[in-house]
Amino acid sequence: MQGRLSAWLAKHELVHRSLGFDYQGIETLQIKPEDWDSIAVILYVYGYNYLRSQCAYDVSPGGFLASVYHLTRIQYGVDQPEEVCIKVFTPRKNPQIPSVFWIWKSADFQERESYDMLGISYNNHPRLKRILMPESWIGWPLRKDYITPNFYEIQDAY
């Protein structure tokens, strides 16, 4: 089943894949990493002016990593804002996705957290560095193939 945004993107020959609707009826689309920066600009111009959230997850051990964007179209005089969910899948080896920080400033800390926990590199992000783990931490803790170290060093506990 194709949603309104998917039909609009198809009409304008923009490459994407419809993933249907979630349990709340929000349309979900898959975008290729190399197309994400241009489609993000188009979505912003189309009216999706608010990045509600960005997160990432490991699809399967040894499989793809996914970066998920929940965008909202907020307009005056509209009681129910239009929402869309965008999923960008990237290979586990050298995962890279264009950053949307320059379009939606709220992506700053959210993309940094996805980088810190899963190792997804967001190209052109101005401050892409660890945010939760120490800079010296090795590995990406939320990956399904992550091996937990058998020691934890508590520093500055007091």
Results as ranks from 00 to 15, higher is better:
residue 31 I to R: 02
residue 44 Y to K: 15
residue 41 V to Y: 08
residue 62 G to S: 05
residue 105 K to F: 10
residue 38 S to H: 05
residue 17 R to G: 00
residue 20 G to T: 06
residue 101 F to T: 11
residue 148 T to Q: 13
residue 69 Y to F: 13
residue 40 A to T: 01
residue 45 V to Y: 04
residue 62 G to R: 12
residue 33 P to H: 10
residue 113 E to H: 10
residue 128 L to K: 03
residue 66 A to P: 03
residue 27 E to V: 12
residue 85 C to N: 09
residue 72 T to N: 11
residue 78 V to C: 10
residue 83 E to P: 05
residue 125 H to A: 11
residue 117 M to K: 00
residue 112 R to C: 14
residue 95 P to V: 04
residue 52 R to Y: 07
residue 11 K to V: 06
residue 153 E to N: 14
residue 155 Q to T: 13
residue 79 D to V: 09
residue 23 Y to W: 14
residue 137 W to A: 12
residue 88 V to Y: 00
residue 87 K to W: 00
residue 152 Y to M: 10
residue 5 L to R: 09
residue 72 T to Y: 09
residue 104 W to L: 04
residue 27 E to F: 06
residue 118 L to R: 03
residue 22 D to M: 09
residue 104 W to A: 03
residue 66 A to G: 05
residue 133 M to C: 12
residue 124 N to D: 15
residue 57 Y to L: 08
residue 114 S to R: 11
residue 78 V to G: 10
residue 23 Y to D: 14
residue 49 N to P: 12
residue 95 P to R: 00
residue 99 S to L: 05
residue 88 V to A: 03
residue 60 S to Q: 13
residue 84 V to S: 01
residue 133 M to D: 00
residue 107 A to P: 00
residue 9 L to V: 07
residue 34 E to K: 01
residue 106 S to A: 14
residue 147 I to L: 04
residue 64 F to Y: 04
residue 27 E to Q: 05
residue 116 D to S: 05
residue 1 M to P: 15
residue 143 R to A: 04
residue 94 N to S: 13
residue 124 N to Q: 14
residue 68 V to W: 02
residue 18 S to D: 15
residue 74 I to E: 14
residue 58 D to K: 10
residue 53 S to E: 13
residue 9 L to A: 02
residue 108 D to R: 08
residue 40 A to Q: 01
residue 16 H to C: 03
residue 148 T to P: 01
residue 158 Y to V: 15
residue 108 D to Q: 07
residue 137 W to F: 15
residue 5 L to N: 07
residue 11 K to L: 14
residue 147 I to S: 00
residue 81 P to S: 03
residue 61 P to N: 05
residue 123 N to Y: 04
residue 20 G to I: 08
residue 30 Q to I: 00
residue 81 P to N: 03
residue 151 F to M: 14
residue 82 E to F: 04
residue 54 Q to P: 00
